[in-house]
Design a protein around this nucleic acid. Structure first.
Lengths: 106, 106
DNA sequence: CTCATATTTCGACTTTCTTAGAAATATAAG
DNA sequence: CTTATATTTCTAAGAAAGTCGAAATATGAG
């Protein structure tokens, strides 16, 4: 993963409201959840929620699919896996950091 | 880990300059690296660097130790472990998300 | 004490983010 | 076509972040 993309995803998750949205979507599983359902859980105005969902989509952490008038949002699990992998491995690519940080052999 | 703390750490790593700093520190290992050494690697002004190091410290991702006039910065590996654990597990605490996301049994 | 080095604090500026109401758009139902 | 629902776009305002030069501080050396 490129550093810029990782930074963008980390920044996206760094906003408390967006982290809540993302947590809700992760827990919603493959089925996903509509923007309106997320709004019901969070209680933020629709325009604010739309803005944050867009941000999450732009980073690739979330995907969207239209179903009639509702928009289904889903956590992009492979993207999350890639980000976790970046944090765990890319930062320690040269093997000089403590073994506890590495998930791959040096 | 509390959500607010996780968000603060994610936001801290979300800035490209800070992510670079953090990567440098992670690779520096337990020995750490002085602010000046980091500056030599990144080429950002001292005041900017100081600002970012402070932010990283405030979130707990980095620790500092004075050695005479130089300040040694070190990546806080347990903090990183906790953040990775948060992303991998806390978001999936109720076990409804796909198994690929879980590191603990439901 | 004075000097030199390392780092921080201050101050100012510009940019970006966050928020949310109002209006616009999209889609389906009747 | 009209209506109803879901979501986005527009717009604006204040808050926060990022940057960096200049000045201040801290520590040790001579």
């Amino acid at each position: 993963m490129k550093h810029e993309k990782a930074a963008a995803q980390l920044e996206a998750l760094g906003n408390p409201t967006r982290l809540k949205i993302y947590r809700i979507l992760v827990r919603a599983g493959e089925e996903g959840m509509s923007v309106g359902q997320v709004q019901g859980k969070l209680g933020v105005p629709a325009s604010t929620l739309s803005h944050h969902c867009k941000r999450l989509c732009e980073t690739g952490l979330v995907s969207q699919e239209r179903q009639a008038t509702t928009l289904i949002c889903r956590a992009n699990y492979p993207a999350m896996q890639a980000l976790l992998g970046y944090l765990a491995d890319e930062c320690c690519a040269d093997g000089t950091c403590p073994p506890v940080m590495r998930t791959r052999a040096p």
